[in-house]
Simulated scan of single mutants.
Amino acid sequence: MKKTHIALAVSLGIFSLPSSALVGGDARSAGMGGTGVASANYLTAPFYNPALMAQSNDSNDFGLLLPSVSAGVKGTENLQDKIDDFQGANKALENLNLNNPDPEVTKRVVENWKTSLKALDNSGLDAGVGVGFAVAVPNSLIAVNVFSKTDVDSMLRLNIDGKQLDQPLPDADKDESRAVVAAMMVTDVGVSLARNIDVPYINQTISFGFSPKIQKISAYQLNERLASFDNGNFELPTQTTDTTAFNLDLGVSYQPVPEVTAAFSATNLIAQELESPKSNGQTTVVQIEPRLAAGVAYDNGWFLGAVDVDLTEQNSFKTEADGKQYARLGAELNAWGWAQVRAGYAISMTDGYEDLASIGLGFSPFGTLGFDLAAQVADQNEIGVAAEFSLTF
């Protein structure tokens, strides 16, 4: 184990964002419901499907993404207020005068303590932060994209101890309700290569791409009594478990006609697991699971429509019952290559996440400098935002 800067990332991810990790790895995709398997451009293709790099226009010679930034949070409504209410009720229970108790006061304090503790059952928070960079050189021989991406997935879970709830007079010092903060940070550094392969007899091509990459994975956990957990202002220990591994992404795409693309991608083909350091004798196992996805897109120059379907479920934490898996819909209106309006919808295929709606805007004066913004919302407690800058020639 060694020290890293993951503590800062976790504290930003959980406690500084507005209140679902974002669906989609860049702002353009996020505005279109997270679609990208068949609709990403050659600059962001490594995040979704490396084969799409081979489908760039002949006018594209160089691209630079610097950077793409995204963040999202999914949490229990009024979670901080509920934690504060319980901690206040817990202090009142600790200060109860047991030598000469007032029966009415005792009853009121005990009922308030039990009610505030029960209100925290099944409560928690999920947060994600992502930063991506890419340098692309498309060409007809072999398209090349050197990329880097860092993602932080973090969660806060409140594990309620029900033993004291059954006691007529609970002992606050014996309550073992816990607050567990766990986080995984993954940094990918790799190169994507793509090429068009001619299909004999039908005068068409299929695009193939692959991305060998190095992954650095860091895992962290904090396990603390809920009664003393300071969710508004606390210092995280910097001890993490770290490992470095090799991984691989693959992709294929096919255009039966110039306007239509059908695609399939397989990312993180080599599954990874890592156990966090112990905190009060407990650990959390984080994981990277292979992701399979299929998509189709229609693009006539001014209108782009895309559909993606996740074929596998993704879960960063092995202890969590529900992961993320979506069917995604997205659309983009392109005004002469200078401005774009985007919208999308992601339909959750698991019980732990809600459907998401998205909107996005893009500005690309002269078709060279690009600036994109996106926002996603499921309800008032599930929000994501993204922004990116790009330069293409």
Rank of each mutant, 00 (worst) to 15 (best):
I142P: 05
V137I: 15
T76K: 13
M349A: 09
L373M: 09
A40Q: 14
A30K: 12
A51M: 08
S140R: 15
P365S: 06
P365Y: 09
L43H: 04
Y201H: 08
A45H: 08
F210D: 02
M349Y: 01
A263H: 02
L141E: 11
L22M: 05
G124R: 04
K82H: 13
M53P: 03
I383L: 07
F234K: 11
T106M: 14
A343E: 09
G33P: 06
Y201T: 00
F86E: 03
V23L: 04
W336M: 14
A375G: 11
L96Y: 02
N233S: 15
P18F: 07
D102S: 04
L311G: 02
E354R: 14
G132E: 13
L222E: 10
L125T: 02
F303G: 03
A89Q: 07
N231Y: 09
R108D: 15
L125C: 01
E354P: 01
L22Q: 14
F86S: 04
L361Q: 06
P170M: 02
V286M: 08
G75R: 12
A245I: 07
G13Y: 03
V285K: 13
Y254F: 15
L373I: 02
S19W: 03
L156R: 09
L12T: 01
Y326S: 08
T243F: 05
R342W: 06
V377T: 06
P200E: 06
V257F: 12
D121C: 00
S11E: 14
G33I: 02
T238P: 11
D151H: 07
I214L: 14
G124N: 09
K278P: 14
K213F: 04
P170F: 01
V191G: 09
A143R: 07
V110A: 07
I6W: 10
F264S: 05
P258G: 09
L226K: 05
A321Y: 01
V309P: 06
E273K: 11
F15N: 14
T241M: 15
A38G: 13
E275R: 07
D84C: 00
I347G: 08
N231K: 09
L248K: 06
K82P: 03
A89C: 03
L333V: 02
E388K: 12
N122Y: 05
T76E: 12
Q167F: 00
E289Q: 04
I217V: 12
V146N: 13
P101Y: 14
I14Q: 14
S148L: 08
L12C: 02
L66D: 04
A343G: 12
Y298M: 06
S218F: 07
N334T: 08
L141S: 12
F317A: 06
L274D: 13
G75N: 12
D322R: 01
Q55M: 10
V37T: 10
P101S: 14
S29C: 12
Q380A: 08
V189K: 13
A346Y: 05
P212R: 10
V144A: 06
F208E: 03
V146G: 08
D299Y: 05
E111I: 00
G36D: 12
L226V: 03
L222G: 05
